[in-house]
Write a protein that binds this DNA or RNA. Structure first.
Lengths: 196, 196
DNA sequence: GACAAAATAGAACGATCGTTCTATTTTGTC
DNA sequence: GACAAAATAGAACGATCGTTCTATTTTGTC
């Protein structure tokens, strides 16, 4: 790994962490340079534009999401266990130390839902991918007869993600101490109704 | 109504609308002044600080929320009809023309969940109030024997709001055409399980 | 260690930010 | 319509924004 790639990686780590609390738009090249003790122009040279930096931050987050949430789940047994793993791993993701402000995808969602452009497009694609990973795991669980055959995997994926969205909202803004417990309960109910 | 109050009201209307798409932090006094064809300093004089302007925008939104969602629901029959009205009225709120960017409370939530201060405090208080309005309507429905007696109104309010949060996410970012239909279906299921 | 290439720093750009100050205009009352 | 009060405008502030340019330093290769 060359020096440049090293620096670039360090910048993206720091930027990801601060984007999770300040939002992607809240990122400031000057502020990042100060944190990393380098010059604005030196930092800028790695990305050519702020939007490109923001996209790279999102790509970094996607990489971590795959490593933390998706890949470990794929190593679990097909069917219900894998669906459960996706759910549990997501919590590990949303509470990991490198994301002090919670899931970057969720916080960026309302930030960019009205801002057309490359960032919004990438966010939308990412969310669609995530939903289809869940949907696919669910249809495998139907195949394996862990879930009932008339289950709608699309609706399940939707309800699955709803639980996570609500958890994020309640735990971060309202600081409800029972947010996680509630999410777990909702999830068990969802699984229960899927078993039929 | 004096001239000053008139202007102030017009500023808040415009600011609310643009905050719904750009976020509360995205508000710019210079940009607002341009839209309203007045001077920055003339506009500024009404609020004394940007944070105060942001708080007043939120207060304006709360007023509209009460008028659109809560008051009409309180005029409905106690019990399940009132709970239904709260749900339906919320959709009118989230799609109203003065909020082109959707519900300001939801978009501000992830924007300020990591920014301590008066705005965050006010948002938290607002969300708590809203949840307790729902909770109260639900316990009345229990009293009226529309819902089963062992129903947990707190959990119901949580699930109720989860549906709205998910709808907001899916309809705004992913532009799912079936988001509302899905929300309605989830709501009917929630009501069904509450009847017991 | 010479040397080109890669990485970083420094200074400056035009633009915009929120805010303060003073001057001017408009409003409402007698 | 005179007159004080209220509302608005204008100019300027220091700070920060993303970006561009040129100069310097550091890296990696022979």
């Amino acid at each position: 790994m060359s020096k440049g790639e090293d620096t670039r990686g360090a910048i993206l780590e720091t930027a990801l962490s601060s984007a999770s609390t300040l939002g992607l738009s809240g990122l400031s090249i000057g502020e990042l340079a100060r944190e990393l003790q380098m010059s604005k122009s030196g930092l800028f040279a790695h990305f050519d534009s702020k939007e490109h930096l923001q996209l790279e931050v999102l790509r970094t987050a996607v990489g971590q999401f795959i490593d933390t949430v998706i890949s470990p789940a794929l190593r679990q047994q097909r069917g219900e266990p894998r669906v459960r793993a996706l759910f549990e791993n997501w919590f590990a993701w949303a509470t990991r130390k490198s994301l002090p402000g919670g899931c970057l995808f969720i916080s960026s969602a309302s930030e960019f839902d009205d801002q057309p452009g490359a960032i919004r497009d990438y966010l939308v694609a990412t969310q669609r991918d995530w939903l289809s990973v869940v949907r696919h795991a669910v249809s495998i669980a139907v195949e394996e007869r862990h879930f009932r055959s008339d289950l709608d995997p699309d609706q399940f994926a939707h309800d699955f993600y709803s639980i996570l969205l609500a958890y994020h909202h309640f735990s971060r803004l309202l600081e409800s101490p029972d947010a996680q417990e509630r999410a777990l309960r909702s999830f068990e109910q969802l699984i229960g109704s899927a078993r039929g």
